[in-house]
Amino acid sequence: MNIVVCVKYVPDAQAERTFNASDNTTDRENVDGLLSELDEYAVEAALKLVEAGEGEVTVVTVGPDQAADAIKKALQMGADKGVHVKDDAIHGSDAIATSLVLAEAIKKIGSPDLVVTGMASTDGTMGVVPTMLAERLGLPAVTYASELTVDGAKATIRRDGDVSTQTIEATLPALISVTDQINEPRYPSFKGIMAAKKKPVEEWSLADLGVEAGQVGLDAAWTKVEAFAARPPRSQGEIVTDEGDGGKKLAEFLASRKFI
């Protein structure tokens, strides 16, 4: 089984994240980045499927030069090869354009049995790319999997909702997005780290994919960040002085915030 995993290089959530003042896009230059944590679950899910049978895992990312780090991390975990789509024209792309570039890249990679993605990125957190991508590729989209099994040409997932748990089947080829409940992503082993540098990574431009520069980027985006402001510092909490009715006041406070 051949699997393509879409991964994203995102600013480290532990660091101070901000936007570029010039065009209100995410600042990726001045913040350390890494493989989006939610994508580690997708890589792990793909590796488990391939290790249980045969085939290979290709990771694909769309992003600037540093995004190569996200591919490298996935290769260190055990993926077989990487594809890095980078082009200055992509800067500022929205989810619609991102899904277009990813779809063309996946078509060029071949016809995978499965496309696996995380449930959302940890920076944009829109969570719409998986569905858009499935639409563009003409694949069934089975999203938010917290369990995944593949038996022959059939994939089965469990999707945990607020009020029900659903079991959903799809025939391969299919696109699956996974949640952070699906597995425990492995640490890259030392052998994996050392082997990663010998694994092939291809770099493709928009021209390689037959995508016009005008179809992507900030100018083509359907959504834009108009303005941003830092969140005000947290104000001090409310102090309840116990005058014999502390418990009651506490309960009222919790009830007013719908905690109880």
Partner: peptide, 18 residues
């Protein structure tokens, strides 16, 4: 052992060879 820490700088015999 899964990480590859044990005998990590030795060559061969299942060691990582760092």
């Amino acid at each position: 052992g899964q990480l590859g820490v044990l005998g990590m700088h030795l060559e061969g015999y299942g060691c990582a060879g760092t």
